[in-house]
Design a protein around this nucleic acid. Structure first.
Length: 457
RNA sequence: GCCAGGAUGGCCGAACGGUAAGGCGCACGCCUGGAAAGCGUGUUCCCUUUCGGGAUUCUGGGUUCGAAUCCCAGUCCUGGCGCCA
């Protein structure tokens, strides 16, 4: 959310900035409502002042025993009360509309973010690991085929127990997921100074609004105990779409001390996404699924530190891929592609060599987004009321929040299965993961179970 | 799930229908050779160029001219009972 004051004082800047994000916003209406609200508020304050005076006069008269004068005053007070209710009623309505409109207003992009319309205007700022990359099999088998061959990924049974878009990781596949989670958590804790958080998986509507998922993106979330198009209130629960939601909201409605900052939290959680409107895209494999594991990095910083921290966060996320030896690139998102609540955002895309995509690298294969690293500045902090007090006796100020995936697990599994694949269809375990898999250095797969496997060659 | 008790500023804590004491902390000032102590002022949010005004006793309703105080509902905390991986 942008501050009323900022919109009030810089309407042109807001209009221009939001245009670069490709959204149309009725800034005039907001200014109009704000103006009208302030007038009513002044009027109401004045009426209240008069009523307070009369009220305290009643107290005095009663104490003095002048019942007659007190009755007169009570009558005046009743009249004022009626006027007051009318004025404040209208003021409340206007304020409600104002808040509603402000909540739907996207964040203003950072002035240095590249201006552009869509993903074709994103800027590649870094590419790593291609100069000395591994030798690959003649024909790299895509992870979805290899995963079934090795009996480490099971799509049919995932669909059976939960529906399409859910998968089951089995045997070495499940162990690989666990190993990646632990490896990432250890890396960020030990090398980057993160404190672990293991949050609740259901989150309430207030949290979803605080980080910006609601009200705009209802259709993407899994709701507990109600249909998505039914009205919801603050206490209704949703399955988290990213650990960003519970972790950022940890300090909702709180004022932190200056010396608490910066706070760096990491959280492993499963993530749940309906992927509404994505039907027909990426139906094979684990690139786009309704539930996936992710380690999320969330930072709370002083406003003046957030730009530098964004670069730091990017380095912390890419460090994971570098330790695993996985080639990747970094894109800076243009204004039109960065999303509702971001002021500045980088995407990290790992290289998966099996399927050639039109927008993949010259070496073949395709890019898979494994992390989004974003600076929200005060946008989320204002929605969620997360403040800090720069000086103990002074006003509280909104801090800045940032986050980045550190990183999404299934797409790293894809990259490992394809990039570390051998001619014989086994997958080498990257060195840093071996301690997390009991020293296992190669995934050789397991035996199928059940009648359907009999006679399967 | 049931019963009982509770929630007041950054912290502690009074007021229990008449308009939020006091203490601690913190900031600034005075005092001092310097410090401590002492004294004074300030310490949340909103509107207002200023002056000033309004709001705020967990949240939302209600009663009342007036609610921290009374009533209803909810949230959270504490204790007891029940249930439970």
């Amino acid at each position: 959310m942008l501050s009323r004051q900022f919109v009030r004082e810089h309407p042109e800047e807001v209009r221009r900035a939001l245009e670069t994000k490709g959204v149309e916003v009725d800034v005039d209406r907001i200014l109009e409502v704000d103006e009208a609200w302030r007038e009513l508020k002044a009027e109401g304050d004045d009426l209240r002042y008069r009523r307070n005076e009369v009220s305290s006069r009643i107290g005095e008269l009663k104490r003095e025993g002048d019942e007659e004068a007190a009755e007169d005053a009570i009558e005046r007070s009743q009249k004022l009360k009626e006027e007051l209710e009318a004025v404040e009623g209208r003021a409340d309505e206007l304020e409600g509309e104002l808040v509603e409109r402000l909540l739907e207003l996207p964040n203003v992009p950072h002035p240095e973010a590249p201006v552009g319309d869509d993903e074709s205007d994103n800027v590649e700022v870094d590419r790593w690991g291609f100069d000395d990359r591994r030798g690959l099999p003649e024909e790299v088998v895509p992870h979805y085929d290899l995963g079934e061959d090795l009996e480490i990924l099971d799509f049919d049974r995932g669909a059976k127990v939960a529906g399409g878009g859910f998968y089951v990781a089995k045997g070495e596949g499940a162990r690989l997921e666990h190993a990646l989670v632990q490896f990432m958590l250890d890396t960020h804790r030990e090398a980057h100074g993160y404190t672990d958080v293991f949050p609740p998986i259901p989150v309430d509507s207030a949290s979803m609004r605080g980080t910006g998922q609601l009200p705009k993106f209802v259709e993407d979330a899994y709701r507990l105990g109600g249909a998505n198009d039914e009205p919801y209130d603050d206490e209704d629960l949703w399955l988290l779409p990213t650990a960003e939601v519970p972790v950022t909201n940890l300090y909702r409605d709180e004022i932190l001390l200056d010396e608490d900052l910066p706070i760096k939290h990491q959280a492993y959680t499963p993530n749940f996404r309906r992927e509404a409107g994505e039907h027909g895209t990426e139906t094979r494999g684990i690139v786009r699924v309704h539930q996936f594991n992710k380690v999320e990095l969330v930072n709370f910083v002083r406003p003046e530190d957030s730009s530098d921290r964004l670069e730091g966060l990017l380095g912390e996320a890419t460090a994971v891929l570098e330790r695993l030896g996985l080639p990747y690139r970094v894109l800076e998102m243009c204004t039109g592609d960065m999303g509702f609540s971001q002021a500045r955002k980088y995407d990290i895309e790992v290289w998966a060599p099996a399927d050639d995509a039109p927008d993949g690298p010259a070496t073949g294969g395709r890019w898979l987004e494994v992390s989004s690293v974003s600076n929200f500045e005060a946008f989320q902090a204002r929605r969620a009321a997360i403040q800090y007090r720069p000086e103990q006796h002074e006003s509280a100020a909104y801090l800045h929040t940032l986050n980045g995936s550190g990183v999404a697990i299934p797409r790293v599994v894809v990259a490992i299965m394809e990039y570390y694949q051998h001619d014989d269809g086994t997958v080498e375990v990257p060195g840093p993961l071996r301690p997390y898999m009991g020293g296992l250095d190669r995934i050789e797969g397991g035996e199928p179970v059940g009648e359907s496997a009999v006679g399967d060659g």
